[in-house]
Design a protein around this nucleic acid. Sequence first.
DNA 1: TTGCGGATTAGACTCATTCTAACTGTGTTG
DNA 2: CAACACAGTTAGAATGAGTCTAATCCGCAA
Lengths: 148, 148
Amino acid sequence: MIQNLTEHDREHLQEALGKSGQKVTPQREAVFTVLLAERDHPTVDEVFQRAREVMPGLSLATVYNCLETFVGCGLVRQVNHERESTRYCPNLAPHAHFRDKATGRVHDIELPPEVLKSLRSILPPGFDSEVIEISFHGRAQAKDSPAN
Amino acid sequence: MIQNLTEHDREHLQEALGKSGQKVTPQREAVFTVLLAERDHPTVDEVFQRAREVMPGLSLATVYNCLETFVGCGLVRQVNHERESTRYCPNLAPHAHFRDKATGRVHDIELPPEVLKSLRSILPPGFDSEVIEISFHGRAQAKDSPAN
DNA sequence: TTGCGGATTAGACTCATTCTAACTGTGTTG
DNA sequence: CAACACAGTTAGAATGAGTCTAATCCGCAA
């Protein structure tokens, strides 16, 4: 179900966009709302379908634009797996992804700081990493990840 | 420079293909040779260009086929980074990848068993992972990775 | 010699993503 | 108020990695 943004989320959006000199628009709000409503790592197309329910005139190009903008100002993260469609994730805390072979679902896996640190430590001198992507691929008996 | 396969490498190829009921063909040999000759994580297209120098009639489709076959029988690994072209890597030891922002080059990063273990340990119960992909993205002052 | 099956091939096709050029809406300046 | 600037949006065309298809090739067994 797509709710309106909370006051807090709207401010978050506003601030992040503002910082990079961009505005809140109805389309950006709709796309952001979709991302927060169901944190199941949707593809662009899924975001598009869901956002259309609320804003029928919305175009696919705009969804691409919005998502790119959000990535640019640090509101969401891209998640890639092999060469499948890019998925989007509003969870900004450092975390890994687990891709369920059977269902295709992507689950967030919490990444404790000490593990992150040990990972950084394997880089030889001279290598300076800004981004680390960790993805598991396998089977999960677990039920759906909790909506949050 | 593209050399012929060593006796050892040829046997390796033969055995791996044989195990999954497939044969060594001149095309597969050429593609495998290219992969071993320069371990710079080439794209399909790069493999194609290089292999053509040695076997001019070779088709792109065959390069795709050969690489898929090799992946299937565990001779090489695919390396994906964001949605760029898939690259191929004949290094089978567990390792991470570092993608240099400036040059686009991909470097292998050794992955000590204890780090691998600590990574596995962050999976909640019920999650069973067969493959872990780790990729860094950033800048490297280091010179080219040693040919090996 | 014929037939079989796996391998190879060229080219058509798919589909996520990017690009382009026109349009919209809002705010600003004269 | 009229003209303009400009960011954002839009539909549709273009791109390009990868996949599919149908024809052909080639080594081997009957």
